[in-house]
Design a binder for these strands. Sequence first.
DNA 1: TCGACACGCAACTGATTGGTTGCGCAAACC
DNA 2: GGTTTGCGCAACCAATCAGTTGCGTGTCGA
Lengths: 108, 108
Amino acid sequence: MTASVDAGTVLAALADPTRREVLAAVAARPGTATATDLAAELPVTRQAVAKHLGVLEHAGLVTSVRHGREAHYRVIAGSLRPASEWIERTEAAWGRRVDRLQQHLSDG
Amino acid sequence: MTASVDAGTVLAALADPTRREVLAAVAARPGTATATDLAAELPVTRQAVAKHLGVLEHAGLVTSVRHGREAHYRVIAGSLRPASEWIERTEAAWGRRVDRLQQHLSDG
DNA sequence: TCGACACGCAACTGATTGGTTGCGCAAACC
DNA sequence: GGTTTGCGCAACCAATCAGTTGCGTGTCGA
């Protein structure tokens, strides 16, 4: 389970400001949150929130549980890992490159 | 100098796959790279690469030095910090939320 | 000096996307 | 049982964006 999602998908999901707000709003709620709840405290409609929640769920950042006629969303702990791992790997690669560059400069 | 850029801008810059490829290609080059260089090893035109480089530069991830008629691009070490910091802060907030949720559940 | 090369700017196109409104359906409530 | 409420789906709109082509300009080398 928690089949870790592609880093690109996570990064793309985090790219939109409103979507980050939705994500933060879900996380800020004690317990769970519905799209209607979140739309009440955000400057967009319920459908817009629902779309963002769909993207976030597809990126593995939130999960939903249908409870009667309500869909309750909750943040998935550790789901940002793919993104942070990508950043770590990238920075590590840059580090190696800088090493080579330093050596290159001190050589020449 | 290196006025640390908004995390949103960095995340948005990292959202596009091709742009990440361009970034990786710049980092992979020993020394510096020009848009023409990068276009030779990527499946897009020079102008597309140039646009991506513009976005990356605006996000503070690369810097360019005009050298005669050539524009040499180079990765800026540590420039991914805003993004990784945002992720850290967000995960920390989730942690606090999970704590509250655990307490809430054990209380109720 | 003249041709070749590298770049930047501008215009245009097609696809994606964030957002809205409207509707239909199922669940909850009286 | 009928009304309300919450959700999902679909259509649609405007804006953004990735990508292209074309062109003008400046710089390098012969």
